[in-house]
Amino acid sequence: MSLALRIVIDVCIFVGAFFALAGTIGVIRMPDTYCRMQASTCIATMGVIGVAIGTLLYAICVEKNAAMAVKIGVVMAFVLFTNPISGHALCKGAYRRGLRPKRPMVIDDFKEDDPYDE
C-alpha cells in the first residue's frame, strides 16, 4: 500500500469523524429540541459520507473486494435515503405533541395556519 493512498483514506475518515464530533457536541449543547434535530442531521450526512468514501477506497484499492465495496455503498445510500424521512416524522410529531421551545421562535408560520389542526 502506498503512502499517498493511506493519507487520502485517513483524510476522508478524519473529515467524517470531525463532523460527527461537531454533531455530537451540537446535540449536547443546543438549547431546544428542534435545534438538536438539526445538529443530528450533521452526523447522519457528513459523518456517514466521509467514512463511507474512506472505507470504499480502502475496500477497492487495498482489499480488492468488490462485494464489500458494493455493500458499503448500499449502507451509505440507505442511511442517506431514510434519514430525512425520520427527520420529517419526528419534527412533525414533536410539533403536533405541542412541544414549543422556551425562548420564542423568531417567526412561526405553522402556528397561525396549521393545516392539520382538527
Binding site: 438539526q38 450526512t45 434519514n83 430525512p84 392539520y116
Partner: peptide, 14 residues
C-alpha cells in the same frame, strides 16, 4: 423536501 431536510440547518415539517 428530502433535499432540504438532508442539508443541516433546515428541516421540512409539512
Amino acid at each position: 423536501a428530502n433535499a432540504i431536510t438532508l442539508t443541516p440547518g433546515t428541516i421540512t415539517m409539512a
